[in-house]
Amino acid sequence: MNQPIIQIKDLCKSYPSKKGAAVALEHINLDIYPGEIFGIIGMSGAGKSTLVRCINFLEKPTSGTVIFDGQDLSKLSSKELCKARQSMGMIFQQFNLLMQRTALQNICFPMEIAGIKKEEALKRARELLKLVDMENKEDSYPSQLSGGQKQRVAIARALATNPKVLLCDEATSALDPKTTRAILNLLKDISKRLGITVIIITHEMAVIEEVCQKVAIIDNHVIAETGTVAEVFSRPKQDATKRLVYPEDRKLPDFNAARCFRLIFDGTSAMEPVISNMIMDCKTPVNILAADTRVMEGQTFGQMIIQIPEQTSQINLERILVYLDNKHVQAEEVSGCLNLKS
């Protein structure tokens, strides 16, 4: 169990171009364990799509390698590589279904490639359609399906050969928020039910928060930070992470008020009504000016800006600060132009 299913070892990828080599990835090291839902997030152009294609060797790394389930992919012949890829399903932003085949035939396709008997393939394809909640659409062609339905068929297709890993390349980026949530829940459910490892490539924070346990932040061709989602997002260490967690457009309006404090929640005081208890304990009303918090794995993370009335005595003020300190909420005084960027 504690052997990684995928080990990316010192992987570099560059593309030859007229002005020397264009670097896409530099010295990537990642361990992904069985059953995990692992997110890889980065801005566009960071190299994340190249990285996911290096995992199944659709792109051959310039140096370094990938160990998948004990086999070094760089040492396999092209025939063996095809065989190994049958243990890795992949889904795409644009679904990439065969347009001239029905949903059922699309799901049979990888089984045809793997040489599975037709009756057996059909039986399995029908089971998979049921798994992705598309039983009544088996004879529909992709052009008759909505984006979310196409992605469901694509997921069923990716699962057809019983892969150990499912690679998702921006799988929800072409879908609306509601459909995105439904697809993510399906992925979560599949991972839990089938014990399959899911690797999700995305540029959206919300996707990572919704389903991933672990995350790697890729910025400028390198892994900037990696760890559990709660760890990485609550205490972003690198600028790249901070930009993702608190993007520029989340900047809050200016406050020109005195006695403003920034409270930082880092998950230690989760479901407790900290602020209202503080108000009652310290007998001081406070004004919440802005808040930007999120819940990850049952813990609250984020920041809040409160204003304490001017007439509050110094003693009460100190009581508030001590109270917050006891609750492990960091407080710092801020004034003038405020935003929630740390």
Binding site: N56, K79, C82, A84, G89, Q94, P110, I113
Partner: peptide, 14 residues
């Protein structure tokens, strides 16, 4: 669409 060919490659098609 090249994506469809890429999908087939990801399934291990020769």
């Amino acid at each position: 669409d090249f994506g469809v060919i890429e999908a087939a490659q990801s399934m291990g098609a020769s």
